[in-house]
Design a protein around this nucleic acid. Structure first.
Length: 882
RNA sequence: GGGAGCAUAGCUCAGUUGGUUUAGAGCAUCUGCCUUACAAGCAGAGGGUCGGCGGUUCGACUCCGUCUGCUCCCACCA
């Protein structure tokens, strides 16, 4: 079959992926082999593949495929996350399109819609991963709301509650008035927002009535004045000493509030008078507790003013702000307004302005858990790659706050707390157990009297169990229970590949859960990828439209090309600036591999001809170089230097294999190749394919299957990675001296405008490896190469050196002697300067005394080499001048 | 305001406990080639006083200090 000139990925990718699936090569079962395990960071079930996923999953696949080829029992567990807030928001939006309001549905009805949505859209992302070539064990696909995994979450909640780690409390939370839920600090995005600072007059009380004297306070939120509980001044602020012990009136509603003193107030900001609104600001809340102020909550869950506001009841907070400003102005309370740039918190999911709101939430105590999780990283049980993240990690773990785990949503695991009619509650995994517990409090309670808490748990409260629950969902919450066979075999997993921004939400918490329930870390290495940005360094986002569609990219450049493009520019922890040219480079490399194979395959093989000397040498060199390269690649992988490993391989294939090895052994046009060289070449090529396979699975399988007849069920996927054999540095160096000579001759040709077809001659003086002559002769198109004891300088020519070996190309009539001399003199000047530096070092007694012997010896060699070179150049010049 | 990190070629990055000749790579650039595997290619070439200053050392891209400029995290002045 004739192979096309260009590699066409579309024709091969689906074919081989289906073949791999059919033969269950991705599937893993515990056996006697050493396991290699990765659990996927579960993407949102309703998500679609973006560039970050591409990077992340390419890396995971490379590691998994390599481990599999190295004989490990490789298991990559895929799955998705229910992503409560994001998914619920999408379902609500979709229902709204159909004219259905969430509020008109019961919890059960809503959940039915949500599950339908999940069944329909969930898992698109997993199908997209297949296009990338991801070798996940799809039989193990999990979802964080699968029944057993949800049970694990409930058991975990009950466990921590009974341990005394979970408590219920009033807290100021970040309230999202749009999705009607509390969101975590991490889900609040602070953005610089242009707002206004309003200066308001609060009249001072005299005998319980407003006097004509007033103070001015500055606020960005005039709509909250009705919730003011005090005005605070700094006790050091002499301007306001006269106010101590006095009271002022809140404008419009004429409520009398005290003046309090606290050093929290910054004297030089605003007016130095702060209105204290405990219900609607986190700092004011803390102040309120300190000064025992009442909490007046005037904003409802939708962000509208409630009846406690007394005025503007039912108005949205932003509408109310406008209206009240006008009212204050009309009533003579507005002194002035100023533009003010401030940091405002927005909900990551809905982009609504976050409202600090007091509410009853469930919390998990973090102190002990964090201490333990910090130790695991500090003592090296878990390695972060790159390790600069250890500092960040430590900082976070030492300043951890209790985790607000309740969310006012329906999509998720409902909190297993059951309220008795008297307001008390019990926490149990099932309603039956809850009833039994409730009856201990009040024997008259019946099942229908119990009301379950409405809230669901934070999504991270299920994903922190992921590395445990995908294998043994009965383990979380039950540290004493023996692990099942799967967990015992696969846990702890080996490597976790994820983004640094979820180091705390997810990675740290998995370490906590793993320690608590398995008494063992969940993974050994955490490889933190960078954020994929566009080439201008901007984060990829829908609104900027700067994020390419990964599927289209793969269609255009092939999955292997995209994988290579992603890896090329990604060192751990550094953001990657994505540019389509990288993917193009990946595609070009695929084509290079493809064409190398076309060349080899096109040769006619003859058993009758002898292997040439140059082919033999090339093979010997390449074999040694192969081992050396494998060693380098292995080392890079052991340190998670993926892009370095890839680049080593890329250059080895392109430069060493194609540009040198193949060019040397290539038979003349129309002539056959000897069998020995051909067979050796096939062996080399097959090894290269195996080395490349983890990175470029499709093209390597296609060519591997094509090299020779394969039986059904055979695959490159399960071939071993080539191992490095002992190699000779001398052999490699000798050949590369030849390469240097060839390059110089080519350079001379080019600079003299000579055609590559025009044969030249070459004289060599010095310790040039004699056997390499045949290679040089062939590759530099030389009619004659002579090893001489003295350069024959009876004709003009061009001279050059490789190491200290002298070379001379006679070029009668083609050389401008003066030009050559000028070139050489420049070289002498350069070398002299260098030599001077070296000699200065060597004449420094302290250097000779203190530096290690090897370093001194190196300097001496530098000295003698440079001296020799200068002498040689001087000789050449003298010859040319004759 | 607190903490962390980064600064090396036009771009993206390596540079592994301070010493491997004159600091490397890929991409881009320039020159010459439609050479019978590949123009998604081949053969060459140019390009950096390692952000500035100071210090430690026989020796600094590497260690310390400082300044400048970026980035991220945390807390945020109403």
């Amino acid at each position: 079959m004739e192979l096309p000139v260009k590699y066409n990925p579309l024709e091969v990718e689906d074919k081989w992926y289906a073949y791999w699936l059919k033969n269950k090569y991705f599937h893993s079962e515990p056996d006697e082999r050493e396991p290699y395990t990765i659990v996927i960071p579960p993407p949102n079930v309703t998500g679609v593949l973006h560039m970050g996923h591409m990077l992340n999953n390419t890396i995971q696949d490379v590691l998994v495929r390599r481990a599999r080829m190295n004989g490990k029992n490789a298991c990559w567990v895929p799955g998705t996350d229910h992503a409560s807030i994001a998914t619920e928001a999408k379902v609500v939006a979709k229902l709204k399109e159909q004219g259905i309001e969430k509020s008109s549905l019961t919890r059960e009805e809503f959940l039915k819609h949500a599950w339908e949505w999940k069944e329909k859209h969930g898992g698109i992302i997993l199908e997209q991963l297949k296009k990338l070539g991801a070798s996940c064990d799809w039989d193990r696909t999990k979802f964080t709301m699968d029944e057993p995994l949800s049970e694990a979450v409930i058991n975990t909640f009950v466990y921590f509650y009974k341990k005394g780690y979970i408590y219920r409390g009033v807290r100021m939370v970040n309230w999202d008035p749009q999705s009607l839920t509390a969101v975590s600090d991490e889900e609040v995005i602070r953005k610089e927002t242009q707002s206004k600072l309003y200066y308001l007059r609060y009249f001072i009380s005299e005998d319980g009535k407003p006097s004509d004297k007033y103070i001015v306070i500055a606020t960005t939120r005039p709509e909250t004045i009705m919730a003011d509980a005090a005005v605070c001044i700094n006790p050091e602020d002499e301007r306001y000493h006269y106010l101590k012990g006095k009271k002022v009136f809140v404008p419009l509603i004429n409520k009398e509030i005290p003046i309090i003193e606290d050093s929290y107030v910054t004297m030089d900001f605003g007016t130095g008078c702060l209105k204290v609104t405990p219900a609607h600001d986190i700092n004011d809340y803390e102040l309120g507790i300190k000064h025992k102020l009442p909490v007046i909550d005037i904003i409802d869950e939708h962000g509208c003013l409630n009846e406690k506001a007394q005025i503007l009841i039912g108005e949205d907070r932003f509408v109310a702000r406008k209206k009240i400003t006008k009212m204050l102005d009309e009533a003579g309370h507005l002194e002035k307004e100023e533009n003010y740039l401030s940091q405002v918190g927005y909900s990551e999911r809905t982009n609504a302005v976050i409202e600090p709101r007091l509410s009853l939430q469930w919390f998990l105590k973090m102190e002990d858990l964090a201490k333990d999780a910090l130790a695991k990283v500090e003592n090296g049980e878990i390695k972060l790659i790159p390790d600069k993240f250890r500092n960040t990690y430590r900082h976070w773990m030492e300043n951890v706050r209790d985790w607000c785990i309740s969310r006012q949503l329906w999509w998720g695991q409902q909190i297993p707390a059951y309220y008795l009619p008297n307001g008390e509650f019990v926490v149990e995994a099932t309603i039956e157990e809850a009833l039994a517990a409730a009856q201990k409090i009040d024997p008259s309670v019946k099942m229908e009297d119990l009301r379950r808490d409405d809230d669901v748990l934070d999504t991270w409260f299920s994903s922190w169990l992921w590395p445990v629950s995908v294998f043994d969902p009965s383990k979380p919450g039950r540290p004493d229970r023996d692990p099942n066979a799967e967990l015992a075999y696969y846990y702890p997993t080996n490597d976790l590949i994820t983004a640094p921004e979820i180091l705390f939400f997810w990675v740290a918490r998995m370490i906590m859960a793993g320690g608590e329930f398995c008494q063992e870390v969940p993974f050994r290495n955490v490889y933190l990828t960078g954020i994929v940005r566009d080439k201008l360094g901007r984060k990829m986002s829908k609104s900027l439209g700067n994020s390419p569609d990964p599927i289209k990219l793969m269609e255009q450049f092939g999955a292997d090309g995209v994988r290579l493009g992603m890896l090329l520019c990604s060192s751990a922890g550094n953001d990657i600036l994505f540019d389509e040219s990288q993917v193009e480079q990946g595609r070009n490399f695929c084509n290079k591999i493809w064409n190398a194979y076309r060349l080899i395959r096109g040769w006619e093989v003859s058993a009758d001809i002898q292997q040439s000397e140059h082919s033999k040498l090339a093979a010997e060199w390449f074999d040694n170089k192969l081992s050396q390269t494998i060693e380098t690649i292995d080392e890079h992988f052991s340190k998670f230097r993926l892009s370095d490993a890839l680049m080593t391989l890329y250059k080895f294939f392109w430069d060493d294999f194609c540009a040198w090895y193949l060019e040397v052994i290539k038979p003349e046009y129309g002539k056959p190749i000897d069998k020995v060289t051909y067979d050796t070449t096939i062996v080399f090529f097959e090894k290269l394919l195996r080395l490349l396979h983890p990175i470029m699975p499709f093209i390597t399988e296609e060519l591997w299957q094509n090299i020779e007849e394969r039986k059904d069920g055979e695959t490159i996927m399960l071939q071993p990675q080539p191992k490095a054999a002992p190699y000779s540095v001398e052999t490699i160096h000798a050949f590369e001296q030849g390469v240097g000579a060839i390059a110089s001759v080519r350079n001379i040709r080019q600079s003299k405008g000579l055609s590559p077809k025009e044969a030249l001659t070459l004289q060599i003086k010095g310790a040039f490896p004699e056997k390499i002559v045949s290679v040089v002769k062939r590759m530099a198109n030389l009619s004659e190469v002579s090893l001489v004891s003295e350069i024959d300088n009876s004709v003009n020519g061009a001279a050059f050196m490789v190491d200290t070996i002298e070379f001379f190309v006679p070029l009668t009539g083609m050389v401008n002697a003066e030009e050559e001399i000028a070139k050489m003199e420049a070289e002498i000047a350069h070398l002299s300067k260098f030599l001077k530096g070296v000699e200065a070092k060597l004449s420094n007694e302290r250097f000779v005394q203190n530096a290690p012997e090897a370093v001194v010896a190196m300097e001496r060699k530098k000295q003698s080499d440079a001296t020799t070179k200068i002498e040689n150049l001087k000789n050449s010049i003298a010859n040319l001048k004759k």
